[in-house]
């Protein structure tokens, strides 16, 4: 697969994972919404960093994303460890 596009396997894993989180937090939609917000903030900041050609110190790091998701998924270790498999520097 070209390095610039997610492979079908990566895409399928992401679909299954989002579906799993959505179902796990059916009774707590605010947790699911917070998860989406973290991802969108991360993506937006990644784009901002690209546009500003990697301004040092800007953007949310993978560590920050992981720790935000960890505090959101407290007690859901399986979800957290699966999330770590998506992070580039986990």
């Amino acid at each position: 697969c070209p390095a610039s596009d997610p492979s079908p396997v990566e895409f399928d894993s992401a679909i299954s994972y989002v579906n799993k989180i959505k179902n796990r937090f059916l009774d707590h939609p605010e947790i699911y919404r917070s998860f989406l917000e973290i991802l969108h903030t991360y993506q937006k900041e990644q784009l901002d960093v690209k546009e500003s050609r990697g301004r040092p110190g800007s953007g949310m790091t993978e560590d920050e994303v992981f720790s935000k998701v960890a505090s959101l998924f407290k007690g859901q270790e399986d979800l957290l460890s699966e999330f770590g498999q998506f992070l580039p520097d986990a």
Binding site: S7, S13, I15, V18, L39, Y42, P88
Partner: peptide, 27 residues
Amino acid sequence: SYDFTPLDSSAVYVLSSMARQRRASLS
């Protein structure tokens, strides 16, 4: 089948892009 909203789909996009970056950084 999944009942995904546009927000869900964009989360899928972000996650799969992260996985792609991870693959690129490991290769």
